[in-house]
């Protein structure tokens, strides 16, 4: 059971937190929901995705419309 869950849910709602603070190495691993859409060479030309945690984290689901 998550400790103090209602308070944490309240914090998420108040501050609009969207992601877990697991991997803080890159913006697309810290905030996969809010960062730029994942793109090849997003940082500079020739920069392939190189952070280890990036391999585990999927980009955000597309909007259903």
């Amino acid at each position: 059971m998550i400790q103090n869950l209602p308070a944490k849910q309240q914090l998420v709602a108040t501050l609009g937190l969207t992601d877990l603070a697991l991997s803080t190495e890159a913006r697309y691993t810290r905030h996969p929901s809010l960062s730029d859409p994942l793109a090849a060479y997003m940082d500079h030309p020739g920069a392939i995705e190189h952070f280890p945690s990036g391999s585990f984290i999927l980009p955000i689901a597309q909007m259903d419309n």
Binding site: I2, L5, K8, Q9, Q10, G16, L17, T18, D19, L20
Partner: peptide
């Protein structure tokens, strides 16, 4: 854990 915590986004 994410499902519980991020229920109120």
């Amino acid at each position: 854990t994410a499902e519980h915590l991020l229920k109120t986004v």
